[in-house]
Write a protein that binds this DNA or RNA. Structure first.
Lengths: 151, 151
DNA sequence: CCAAAAGTGTTGTGTATACAACCGGCCTTA
DNA sequence: TAAGGCCGGTTGTATACACAACACTTTTGG
């Protein structure tokens, strides 16, 4: 006799895009946070550390654009990395990892690869491809390659 | 000679699922927040108000499960609605909109329909379908209909 | 050279979210 | 009936993020 439904699902094309993305983001973020916990970092921190590792001296405004994070939000995230001693003090001159930051970034990358592998296995290539398709379409529209505008 | 790349894109199936979802979530949330701003609510608030509108007396734990939001986080979101006077005081007895909450919820729903329409037009059915596919696959795996576990 | 403009980062304020610990009610069971 | 457990909700603490306003630096046009 059908209990109150408490599960999300529904392929209904009428679902709320924002709500769905936010929910998926929460779920997947939790998964990654759990994996990174032993290193003592969150996904957001790990992501920044790995970005800086891959491109030492990168500027905040560059990361801000690449990750589509508001510059003020990123500034505070950077202050967090600073508090933990993972990056050097002179942030206005580009971001550089400290020795410790370097070690943490490497451990993060190892973990990231494992989790990514696991996610790929469980969800399958098709799903990742589907997400990529949505993503590419959004960016394509945002870039104005279609019609005009889309904030 | 190729400037430093600062744009996201890349259909590469090797992209980070968490990073991508978080980015998409930020972008789309901003879009909706902008649309809801005239009413003085954020997307998250509007979403809760509309849920309560659709199901008066709903309990926190139900919304928590449905939206996959941690119960403590939801508790604080509810306190926000309370501060704004959009829901009645006795939250432990189920959530109910006040008169004002009702008005706001209705305006939110109107706006939501407009924005959804606009998003659907710009991105196209195929993209929404792709997102739904990813989403359904994730929930299907989470529900353990494949192999065992996936937190 | 200087003043306006544009670009980069920070601060003030508020919301959204998580995890762990706890509280109070209800139910089970020894 | 009293000791536990489970459940739903709240609180303590810390991140993550946004918008607006500001400060500082660099660039640009005269």
């Amino acid at each position: 006799m059908a209990q109150e439904e408490d599960r999300a699902g529904a392929t209904d094309t009428n679902f709320c895009v924002a709500g769905r993305l936010r929910m998926l983001s929460r779920i997947i973020t939790s998964l990654y946070n759990e994996a990174f916990a032993p290193v003592g970092v969150t996904y957001a921190q790990a992501s920044l550390l790995m970005s800086i590792f891959a491109q030492p001296g990168v500027r905040q405004v560059m990361l801000s654009r690449r990750l589509q994070i508001e510059k003020s939000a990123l500034s505070r995230d950077v202050q967090g990395l600073l508090r933990h001693g993972w990056i050097g003090e002179n942030v206005r001159n580009g971001l550089y990892l400290t020795e410790e930051g370097n070690r943490v970034a490497k451990r993060c990358h190892t973990i990231w690869k494992e989790v990514h592998e696991q996610v790929r296995d469980k969800l399958g290539e098709d799903s990742l491809q589907a997400l990529a398709q949505f993503s590419d379409q959004l960016f394509s529209v945002k870039a104005g390659r279609n019609h005009e505008s889309f904030p």
